[in-house]
Structures are given as C-alpha cells and as structure tokens.
Write a protein that binds this DNA or RNA. Structure first.
Lengths: 337, 337
DNA sequence: CTGAAAGCGCTAACAA
DNA sequence: TTGTTAGCGCTTTCAG
C-alpha cells in the first residue's frame, strides 16, 4: 500500500504522534525533529490521506458546487470564481451538474454529503432552494448561489428586478413602449423577477399601453428557443402588434431572437430593439453586438466561495445576503452607434 | 455528530456487520432483516461516510480532472463529457485548473492523491504529461487527455497532424498557397503538430513556395492575441507578402484574426481565408462564420472517463490510445456561400 | 517536547 | 445468516 505516517515515523526515528504534530501543530515540535520528519516525508514522498485525517477528526478541505451545467458559460464562469478561491485556500472543488432536475439535485447533495465535504454551494433548480435545510441540519455549511436566501443563511444573488427595470428604462428612453419578455420557467424566479421589473418600470413611466408586457415562454435558454420565440412573436402579429422592445432572459435567447427576426426581414435595432441578459463574452462577438444586462458571474462565484469558507472557519460568522446590482451594457442591438 | 452505522444497527436491532453487509453484499443478508435495516436507514436518513468506507478498504467513487481552465469552452465541454459518465456511474468529479502552470499541475495532482480519488484524468500542461507516472506508481488509475500517450497507458487525443493537413488541403483547393499558422507554445505539441500537418500537406501538393508556412507565435489562445497576430502579419508586409490562407490554433484566435484583418481593410474571405480550430459553438455565431477543424470535445471527455473507469474496475483492462479524427467544417471565413 | 494509546466510522474476515 | 472483532491511517488526549 501507500506510504503511511507510520513509515515516516520509523524513518525519522520518532512516533506517529510526533509526525502528526508536525503536520497539524508544527509550532509544538522542536525545530530539529521537525526538519528531520519533514525530510523523511520528502524522501518517502509522503502524502497524508485526507480520508484518514477526517476520521481522525479533521475537517475536510473540500467543498462542493452544485449547478445546472458546466457547459453553459454563465455557470462555467461562476465555477471559475469558486475554483480560484478554493485553490487559493487549498481546498478542492467537487462539482456536480443537475441539468435542472430536482431528483439529480437531491442525489448530488447526498453524494457530496457522503464525501463529507465541509461546505456546499448550491445554484438551485427552480424549486430546489429548500434542499439546503437538510444539508445544514447535518452541520455542513452551505450558501445559496444565484438565488436570494433567507435571514438564517448566506446567499449571493443579483437583483433581477433592477435588471428588468434597467433594461426597460433603456428601451423606453429609446422610444419603445410596446415591450416583450422572453424567458422560461426553468430559471424560476430569476426570470419572473426580471419580468416584474419590466412591468413596474413600464407602469412607473406612465406610458403603459393596454396590452402590457407580452411574455413569451420558452422551454430552455438556448439559441434555438430564441429563434422559436421570434417565430411566435412574428406569427402573433395578426392579433397583436409586434413589440418593438424585447428583453430576453439570457444572451443565448437574444442571439436566437435577433437571428429569427432578421431572417424574417425585421431589422434589429431599427425595427425592434433586443436586450440580452448575463453579458457573456458572446454578446460582443456576434454580428450585431447585443445590449445586455451584465451579471458579475466570476465575482458571484468568488464571493459565494468566500462566504462559505468564512462560515466554515470563523467562529463568529454572521450570515449575509449579498445582492449584486446588474449593469446595463449598451451595444448595437438596441441602438446604432 | 452525524448518524452512524451503529445507530442504524441499534435501531434495526442488528449488528454493525449486518448493516455493513446490506450496504456492500445485500445478497448475503436475509430479505426480512435487509428491509428492516433499510427502513432504519431511511428513518434516520443515514448517509454512509465515504472516508470511513475507504479506510475500511473500499475504493473511493471519486475521480479527478485536471485541466487548464473551466472557463474556456473547449475544456468546459470536455468536462461535461466527463461529468456525464461520472454521474451515470455514481462517481463524483473533483476538478482543478492549472492555468497551464506546471507547479499548479503538480499541486493539483497531489491534492487529488491526498483525497484518495480512484482515478485521474489529466489534460497536461505543455511539458507536464510525465507527471502521471508518479500517479500510477501510487496505484491510482490515470488517463491522459488531449495528449497522445505511450503504450503503457490510456490516452484520448485528436490527430493534430491530420487536422493541419485537412485545413491546408482545403486552403490549397481554394487556391491559397501562401500560408500562415498562428499558435503558441502554451498548447505545446498540439500546435506544433498542426503546423507540421500544414507543412507536409503543402510539400505534398508540390505547390510549395520558397517561404514555407509562416508561423506566428502568440502567448495565449485569446481573441486579443488573434488581433495582435493580425497586426504582426500586416506590419510584416514590407518584407514578406501577406499570406492568403491562415490556420489559427484555436477558434478564439481566428475570431481575433478576422477582426484584426477586416478592421484594416483586408477582406475575409475575399483577400484572406481564415480557418479556426476546435469548432466551438462560437464559430457559427460571429459575423463571419468561421471554417474550423472540429474536435469532438464532449466525446473526448466521455471516452476518457470510460477508459478510466474501465481501468479502475476491470481486472483485464488493456491500455488503449484513442485518437479521434478531426473534421473540417467549411463556413464563410474561407469561402463565400 | 515526545511517546503511548484510544478512537473516528466503516469493512472484512472469522466465529457462532 | 448474523454477530464479533481486528484493523484501515490518522488525530488527539494524556502521561512521561
């Protein structure tokens, strides 16, 4: 088997306890013995077994991240932020994707708990934010990510209502009063809050028309769904005029929307202005750069990881609900330069 | 503390050993007792501690993935493939990013080893493929990803020489004989193989000019570096004519290259044809859709994970060096439709 | 400051 | 078929 603490002890001519001490409380062991032990470790290329240490009573130096899908740039960027602080603090990051499935989320959480991670970051499914309760009951630290949390927990989110308001005010200022929102149930409250933001901004403007914000529901946050939504809007024209200002629940939807619109001869931004959400790098790269509501994804990951580590380590940790403010980034999809 | 196997045993009125048996060899315990134990587990919401099981002698049900950066779509997509099979097989995936730093790669490997993962997938830094030796010496399964391996190990790679050849033949068939390659040392042999592919295809064509393929070195695989490379090519024009066919080491470089070229009044593809590499989704979304050499990233991740699990489980595992064949996908950046 | 020994939660013989 | 027990590699008292 692998080289154990026993081997190191023998080689250094000390007891296991002493080796353990140089690992965990080096200040308590004599300089001379310590170097001797360190040398022995080095010569044997000793790597202490984390599982064994944990059984011995140490915390685990690993945290878990549960999210929808690493493949999506929004989540990947959050993961980067988390990973950077984890690495910096010498933690490893175990990650699992739920594909937005409640069952998989529950399974993921159990798997992480079984690993004895010392903390969990959860980007919940539409209805799964409560699952953290059970995690906490087991004494494992947890913070909610991309979801507003309660008073007795840490959370990191972005103010979606303000995002909706910012997008709407921008559209209104450009003279667009016939508005639509494209989003789906999969992102749960994220999208409904943004829609609410639109509605309240429109109401506040006093420019509200009879048919308020038109909401188009899509099954997923993809380019294809965006194109589909464009077709829906276009074919509805018989009964309802085409909106001239559209907010999409994420940037991929916006890409699809613009594509669907232009391929039917509707010009963006001349006929219709389109706003995306998230502000992933892609928005700057497409043919018509997209105006978007920027969410600080990397920062969110970093902050959440820091809160989690603080909850793990600090005796006097007080819960915080961090809420970032999204930022409107104007590009060509709403206004020609 | 948490609920242990002991609690379950007491509640079900059996011994620890029996509980352990229903966990590990259910067929050996009487139907009746087993259901009783299962019920007790359920009532207590028992989750067996993986660390403890490992000490007891079980394998770990976790694998590690070491890569450059989760934030990059190429790696993110590989990670997705890995994650899908890990989840399917009830393994958890621990991932670490090296940012292409040898030191960090070594640290990552140690961290994973300390966690007692039962297998490691490594996308090595330019010079770090050898680090797996030490992993294997410790009896931990390992497969090399995105890097051609030796006979005594499993690996999953893509034939870069053929990728370079395919791109070159395509460019030649379009009438471009003055060629350039843009790439960097960071991706190590990946890029040099592609360049070699270009050279041999050019030589084989009999159309070789005196100045063979012009190689432009960039420090990183980013859009900014692509633009920079465009400027370099442009400013070299005094001594060396502008190439008319350019292969970029990845798609982001190609995006930057096209942008740099067009902003200087050089038309793509009319004046210069540009080919990217990887074929990430982005290639279809930019203003001028990019011809690219497709690498099956998701498949690579899946395959590597499957090889790893086979190496972990199967007694009779034989090593394989899987080499995918890249595919040329033609789009507007080399030929107007 | 160092060594000896108990125990962490579980698995895997071995007995019964 | 089930119970008993000896570790797994480490940490952490507690003596020395």
């Amino acid at each position: 088997m692998a080289v154990t603490i026993e081997d190191v002890a023998r080689r250094a001519g000390v007891s296991r306890g002493t080796v353990s001490n140089v690992l965990n409380r080096p200040e308590v062991v004599l300089e001379a013995t310590r170097t001797r032990v360190l040398e022995a470790m080095h010569e044997l290329d000793f790597i202490a077994s984390q599982p064994a240490r944990m059984l011995g009573g140490l915390r685990s130096r690993s945290i878990g991240l549960v999210m929808h899908d690493v493949g999506h740039p929004f989540f990947a960027e959050i993961a980067r932020g988390v990973e950077d602080v984890a690495t910096r603090e010498n933690y490893v990051l175990t990650l699992t994707s739920t594909r937005d499935d409640d069952e998989r989320q529950r399974a993921s959480l159990r798997l992480l708990l079984a690993q004895q991670v010392s903390g969990i970051l959860l980007i919940p499914t539409a209805s799964g934010a409560d699952d953290l309760r059970q995690v906490r009951e087991r004494g494992v630290a947890a913070v909610l990510l991309d979801h507003e949390g309660g008073a007795n927990e840490c959370s990191v989110a972005v103010d979606d209502v303000r995002g909706g308001i910012a997008a709407t005010q921008h559209l209104l200022s450009l003279g667009h009063h016939r508005l639509a929102f494209v989003g789906g149930p999969r992102r749960g409250q994220r999208h409904s809050d943004r829609l609410n933001g639109m509605r309240s901004a429109l109401a506040a403007s006093g420019k509200q028309r009879r048919p308020a914000v038109q909401a188009v529901t899509v099954p997923a946050d993809t380019i294809a769904c965006g194109e589909e939504a464009a077709r829906t809007l276009l074919s509805n024209r018989a009964t309802r005029r085409l909106p001239t200002g559209i907010l999409c629940g994420n940037d991929l939807l916006a890409v699809g929307m613009i594509r669907g619109l232009t391929s039917s001869g509707v010009s963006v931004p001349d006929d219709v202005a389109v706003v995306g959400y998230d502000d992933i790098e892609l928005t700057t790269l497409v043919g018509t750069p997209i105006t978007s509501i920027r969410q600080p994804m990397y920062e969110m990951g970093r902050t959440a990881a820091e809160l989690l580590l603080s909850e793990i380590h600090e005796e006097t940790h007080t819960h915080r609900n961090v809420r970032f403010v999204p930022e409107l980034i104007v590009r060509e999809s709403t206004a020609r330069p």
